[in-house]
Simulated assay, not measured.
Amino acid sequence: MRFKDVFSIIGPAMIGPSSSHTAGAIRLGRVARQLFGELPEKAEITLYGSFAETYQGHGTDLALVGGLLGYETDDELIPHSLEDAEQAGMEVVFIPSNNPAIHPNTAKITLSGNSKELTVVGSSIGGGNIEIVNVNQFDVKFTGIYPTLVIAHQDRPGLIADITAILRTEHVNIGYMDLDRKSRNGEAMTVIEVDSPISDRLIERIRSVDLIHTVGIIDLTERG
């Protein structure tokens, strides 16, 4: 990853000792929470590499749960996130793993509740930056730096063109796109990073496209 400025290296304003183990972990949790769309009833968090070795000493557990609660990297509530999660009715389970991972600071976050489940795999790659590499077993990548659409849909000819046509008519520029599918004409997922905020009107227009199942929105610039 090419760092854009000094703050990409030293990290954002934050609570905690490490931009990788705290600020990045908070953002991983926030991405999962935003994709899930509500407070989950249960969060099962599998930790890999240095996350697994030092998650309690470096406060990674507090940061990941703080992100699931919607806390920002500099939120003074982060040290109390485990207690806050319990009071909010969210069960949290940490599973340190010895299995190899794509990056030393990697977590798999599985959220469940309200008859739905979501799995997000991502890494904290330095300076508070993150990279998501898998959502619900689809190999899609995004960073959360820009507003992002995560669209689950059926694989069919012309569907991506329908989505991009909507973005064009709404004057939304695409900065990055990634797609994965499980089989031809089967389940698929498309990720689109855009250069401007994602409006409710845009979301509703995309949701109305035939054979689109869900539309998730990531915007880490939003507070809470």
Rank of each mutant, 00 (worst) to 15 (best):
Y146L: 12
L82K: 05
G128D: 12
D180V: 04
G57K: 13
R27E: 09
N129S: 15
L62Y: 10
V65F: 04
F51A: 09
G70S: 07
Q56G: 03
S50I: 15
E53T: 14
D219I: 04
L64G: 08
S97C: 11
S20P: 01
I198P: 00
I26D: 06
D200M: 05
V65I: 12
M189W: 09
N185S: 11
F94K: 06
A32Q: 04
I15M: 14
Y146D: 09
D84E: 14
I132D: 05
Y48P: 02
D200V: 12
Q87A: 11
T221F: 05
S183D: 13
G49T: 13
R184D: 12
S124P: 01
F142M: 02
N114E: 12
I45R: 02
I109M: 05
I163T: 10
I15Q: 12
I145V: 09
T22S: 13
L82S: 02
A152G: 03
T190M: 11
F36L: 11
G126T: 09
V121N: 07
F36C: 10
E53I: 11
K108Q: 13
S196T: 15
G89R: 01
I217D: 08
E170S: 12
S50T: 15
I102K: 05
P96W: 06
F138H: 10
D162H: 10
R27V: 11
G70H: 07
R156C: 04
R27P: 03
I26E: 05
V93W: 00
V172A: 04
S183A: 15
V215H: 01
I174Q: 08
V172R: 00
L149Y: 06
A63I: 14
L211A: 14
R205A: 15
